[in-house]
């Protein structure tokens, strides 16, 4: 949504922050080129490494701040999987922890000024969501064979309703990766774009105080959203995992 209104000097570039650029040289973006995506994913990796590996390197019985944050994240995700997916879901704890830590750190790092938000791209969240969808579906069929199809057949519903419900269930099952990925990307993109729009308004003297207050408020909301979206992504992954492990309602 690039619109230049040269008349009053308002310049809106809310989508420019999502552009992917090569960092060395001006060539086209090949699959192997070192882009800002690479840079910010690498920073995400470093941050997680610092929190979960360097932070816990003392293996202290009484944890310091960084170690207790790492343990908090561990316990948070562990309990969530146990509550939602059940005891046998704990086997997939490292996978879900990987997803959650990647998303939450991408979201938070993307909130830094001048930063690039990797999770605001449908390509990234789409791969994550498709990965979850495919692995959960394959897991369901591998564990239960064709019995996995009973996830669509709600045996607690009255018999005449079941085919209709099955149709709805099938549709909602295949819409899952779409909503799963667009939810995260859409939230990130919308929040950052709104901040950028208010930043453009801040250039106008008359409304700049309002714009700056609004940026601050939206930024606070975005910090909340950054965490909640990562949490929602992880918890929905757990819900899908539960369906694969226990397809019988």
């Amino acid at each position: 949504m690039a619109k230049e209104e040269a008349g009053n000097g308002l310049v809106f570039h809310p989508m420019d922050q999502f552009q992917i650029k090569t960092l060395f040289g001006d060539g086209p973006v090949h699959w192997y080129s070192f882009t800002n995506v690479t840079l910010w994913m690498g920073l995400t990796l470093l941050a997680i490494f610092a929190l979960l590996v360097l932070g816990t390197s003392r293996r202290a019985m009484i944890p310091n701040r960084i170690q207790s944050v790492g343990e908090l994240a561990y316990g948070f995700i562990y309990r969530m999987i146990e509550d939602v997916a059940g005891k046998d879901g704990v086997r997939y704890f490292p996978h879900i922890m990987t997803l959650f830590m990647f998303i939450v750190f991408s979201n938070f790092l993307g909130l830094l000024p001048m930063a690039f938000t990797t999770t605001s791209h449908i390509a990234v969240t789409g791969v994550l969501a498709m990965g979850v969808f495919l692995s959960v579906t394959i897991l369901g069929f591998a564990k239960h064979g064709l019995g996995f199809l009973s996830v669509f057949w709600i045996s607690s519903a009255p018999l005449p309703l079941r085919p209709i419900l099955a149709l709805i269930e099938v549709i909602s099952y295949f819409v899952r990766p779409l909503s799963h990925s667009i939810r995260l990307a859409g939230n990130m993109m919308a929040g950052h774009a709104v901040i950028k729009v208010f930043a453009a308004f801040a250039a106008v003297l008359a409304i700049s105080p309002f714009a700056i207050v609004a940026i601050t408020a939206i930024y606070a909301l975005e910090v909340l959203v950054a965490f909640i979206q990562a949490y929602v992504f992880a918890i929905l992954t757990c819900v899908y995992l539960k369906d694969a492990l226990h397809p019988h309602h």
């Binding site: 973006v29 882009t35 995506v37 995400t44 990796l45 990647f102 791209h121 390509a123 990234v124 791969v127």
Partner: peptide, 13 residues
């Protein structure tokens, strides 16, 4: 055109 790049680096990460 940027999708292969993102997907590649995402998988690596």
């Amino acid at each position: 055109s940027t999708f292969p790049n993102q997907i590649f680096w995402l998988c690596v990460t």
